[in-house]
Design a protein around this nucleic acid. Structure first.
Lengths: 150, 150
DNA sequence: TAATAGTCGATAATTTCAATTGACTAACTA
DNA sequence: TAGTTAGTCAATTGAAATTATCGACTATTA
């Protein structure tokens, strides 16, 4: 029942970008350092998020990534789905992947996995990156969310 | 956010054993055939469940596996934990794994993953195999058994 | 045009997962 | 007690997914 590292990195990166919103773009490197994500791996992740329409990018000096929409309009569920696919614990219960389950007896379990899927989806679909940013800012904030040195 | 095949097989096998409870033991082969689970793989799974105290076994003719406790006293959460470990989507939020997260900014996400973990745990901890068996029996049973005539 | 910074495809490294194997032990039954 | 049934166990293989890295490329800016 685990979230992939990709999914975790993606949500952390999106949060970092949301904390920065709507200021100038962030470099891959800045996000990487702030969130301790391997730079080249993060590069891939951001590219996927861009292709999926959640980020925009700019090349060259003063380039970088920024959100394509305000944080309040992006849910965690969307981001996780882009990175990891359906939220459902098994396919026969997925809204986005639906697969017909050939076993009768499995059906004794189907409603349960559906309950789980729904519970997870409910939480992740109602939580936006604005919610996350709001709560992140309120924290005692040790060390440095804001980091300006170069 | 996926359930492993192991976890799925284990819960199917436990359901099969619960449907049979408290009659005589089931052979690995019977469970394997009823639930379409590779026999030698199922063997491993049942052994783990036995070692964890959920099953008892008997060798020789008329041997097989049976539940160590009544289905009403075994939750799905327990079985999934035996097979796949903690229910939590990430470790820093797990009740059974516990890991200190070194990042401040991540904490902006921590509460969310905790909510997800709790939601999943709540469902899987309140659902017993007796619940599953009850609902499985009630199904129309498309392939094999016809509904009883009256 | 030099430096910056994202783009892209390929692939390497690692880990996890699913499954298989063979040799073994216990229990029953004829 | 011999023979068969059935679970036990450790080791390992194979495959797939995941995580991560690389190098060459393109766009942008000063």
């Amino acid at each position: 029942m685990r979230l992939s590292t990709r999914g975790e990195y993606a949500s952390r990166a999106m949060l970092e970008l949301s904390l920065n919103w709507p200021r100038r773009p962030l470099h891959i490197r800045d996000i990487s350092q702030a969130q301790h994500i391997p730079e080249r791996f993060l590069e891939q992740i951001l590219l996927l998020l861009k292709r999926a329409g959640y980020l925009r990018s700019k090349k060259g000096p003063h380039g970088g990534y920024h959100l394509a929409r305000p944080p309040a309009e992006i849910t965690v569920a969307e981001v996780i789905r882009v990175m990891d696919g359906p939220l459902a614990p098994i396919d026969c219960v997925s809204v986005t992947a639906h697969e017909v389950c050939p076993l009768e007896a499995t059906c004794g379990l189907r409603w349960l996995w559906k309950d789980v899927r729904d519970a997870v989806a409910r939480i992740l679909e109602r939580t936006t990156f604005a919610d996350l940013a709001r709560r992140a800012r309120r924290l005692p904030a040790a060390g440095g969310i804001r980091k300006k040195k170069r």
